[in-house]
Design a protein around this nucleic acid. Sequence first.
DNA 1: CCTTTATGGAACATCAGTGTTCCACTGGAG
DNA 2: CTCCAGTGGAACACTGATGTTCCATAAAGG
Lengths: 185, 185
Amino acid sequence: MTVELETGTRIRTRKAILDAAVRVLAQDPGASLGQIADAADVGRTTLHRYFPDRADLLAAVTQEAGRRLGDAAVRARLEEGPGLDALLRACQTCLTLGDLLTLLFTETISLEACGDEDGFSRALDDAIARGLADGTLDPRLSPAWLQGTLWSSLYLAWSELREGTSPQHDVVGQLLLTVRKALSA
Amino acid sequence: MTVELETGTRIRTRKAILDAAVRVLAQDPGASLGQIADAADVGRTTLHRYFPDRADLLAAVTQEAGRRLGDAAVRARLEEGPGLDALLRACQTCLTLGDLLTLLFTETISLEACGDEDGFSRALDDAIARGLADGTLDPRLSPAWLQGTLWSSLYLAWSELREGTSPQHDVVGQLLLTVRKALSA
DNA sequence: CCTTTATGGAACATCAGTGTTCCACTGGAG
DNA sequence: CTCCAGTGGAACACTGATGTTCCATAAAGG
């Protein structure tokens, strides 16, 4: 019991709570723990058993976001190829983050606190620097603006997907088209 | 007293509270009325005297947003010239909305509730339709996506301005450049 | 089958935000 | 100077969220 051996049941419950938290908080950052527990089909008591207080839950969500973001960075192979192409790959990969995008974008959880120093954010900075050097990114746009445009376009795309009114294929297409047009030299 | 003749003092106080509400809520949509009163340099009692409850305050902010948005639509002359140019004028005009942009974008207040039926939103739809018809806007992008890109770029620009790290001139330049590149045919 | 293990609900104390009332004060208009 | 509109603060009741404890129950696994 010293190392908290996690049984299958506990892992599953923990994941259900975490998923519900992401889903509910994305829609309402001020949602109560009761709402999250309900969404997870779990008693409020159980939620507190896994995450003693709100801060613990938020920290766990943040950590999960960091993990997923790290995965995304690896899958997108941000260090390969021209800078612009890397950014477009980042777009596609990040769309799979779903509601986590909303939490990051609205600063319900902070990218800085994700333990992301050597992860996604860094890799993105590198890709942008590379793109400016290799001439695939518009030199009239600052690195901060390039990164900001990427994030806000991503958030827009996720919003559209979440609405569910437009088919995924269309949204991804418009996202990539827009970002390419906006950022390319 | 039947028509609530507003003295200069009352008008000034009311405005101070409204301004503070916009400023504070933009930074934290869940801010307490106490925080808003403090930011307005006004006692909480006084705030309640002007806006009996939170909903009243929010409604007043929403109404103010509608008014400012209506002004913006007029000033931008959205119905004139090519669609793309109208949208670029809209960008510049809307940047003056400041923190109201944040409230609208984060849905702290809703555009629909602004009483905006015949105002900004409608004019924007028209400008987009016109731009698609006159060939200045990219026909591969849906009206919804075009409008979404406009808003998110606007929000990004305002975020940069708010940070205060980059000079206003640079931000506006990058905004217009990005939007033009992204949306033009 | 029986024993852990995990759970849900009820009850409770606590706390922060809200909305109200009352009273004392202040400064500007008359 | 004298009102009095406008204000701020103290005090209060009320509400909803939070975090805790305890107990009964269910289900997973040997």
